[in-house]
Nucleic acid binder design. Structure first.
Length: 221
DNA sequence: AAGAGGATGAACT
DNA sequence: GTTCATCCTCTTG
């Protein structure tokens, strides 16, 4: 029933398609015998070297971004604003610096521990809405950048529990927080489960949404 | 060696 | 709507 996603899933060449397909999958961590998991409801695709919003834009290769050039299925975690640990999944083959940012999950397993990690007393959207928030709830830090998600003994992985999200139920928009990326900032590479209350965004980001119409990358309001 | 800035979140007014 | 915490990474000199 719960199958850990294999390298075949991650190594596909189209990072935008992988980003869409990650909706409805379950992101799981197992640290010190404590398992926490949530259902992915929001993602964004980043595609080096042509995507200016991507850390690997223009084939930029640094110690931090090196893992993006590894084969699909590795975790890429980096520190943002000195505070937030942002979790990405590397996709495509070795040398292709593509990755999917996980932006929001619906809390599912061991919500008590997620609350404790966040310092929250009650369950609310902010528990796991937003890339920094979900990483904290799941206990993910930059120490885990580079772990192979497909490996049977990895402390982080992504599962298929059988959920299937129809295209009609998926919302699409421009990516959040990448205004300085010029034209690339307009690319509709953010995907989310339209009806989910667990999606991030403080209102402003919910504007300019589109809905998938078929698999040919055509969009309509 | 130094400085700017970032794929955010939370707490304000 | 605005402010700011916080620190690593990268660029420049």
């Amino acid at each position: 029933m719960a199958a850990r996603l294999s390298t075949d899933f991650y190594r596909r060449s189209d990072v935008v398609q992988v980003s869409r397909d990650l909706l409805g999958k379950y992101l799981v961590t197992l640290f010190d015998g404590e398992l926490t998991a949530g259902r992915i409801v929001e993602t964004e695709a980043y595609r080096g070297p042509d995507d200016k919003a991507c850390h690997a834009w223009n084939n930029r290769l640094t110690p931090r971004t090196r893992v993006m050039y590894e084969q699909g299925g590795h975790a890429y975690v980096y520190l943002c604003y000195g505070i937030h640990h942002l979790f990405n999944v590397v996709t495509a083959g070795e040398g292709e610096a593509h990755a999917v940012l996980i932006r929001a999950i619906e809390p599912v397993d061991n919500i008590e521990l997620m609350l404790a990690r966040r310092g929250f007393g009650t369950v609310k959207r902010q528990l796991t809405a937003g890339p920094g928030a979900l990483s904290k709830a799941l206990g993910i830090t930059t120490a885990y950048s580079g772990v192979p998600l497909w490996s049977a003994d990895s402390p982080i992985w992504i599962e298929d529990r059988g959920d299937r999200i129809a295209d009609a139920d998926i919302g699409v928009s421009a990516r959040i927080g990448v205004e300085s990326a010029g034209e690339c900032a307009l690319w509709p590479w953010r995907f989310f489960v339209g009806a989910s209350p667990w999606v991030s965004g403080r209102g402003r980001e919910r504007g300019r949404e589109y809905r998938i119409c078929g698999n040919d990358h055509s969009f309509s309001k």
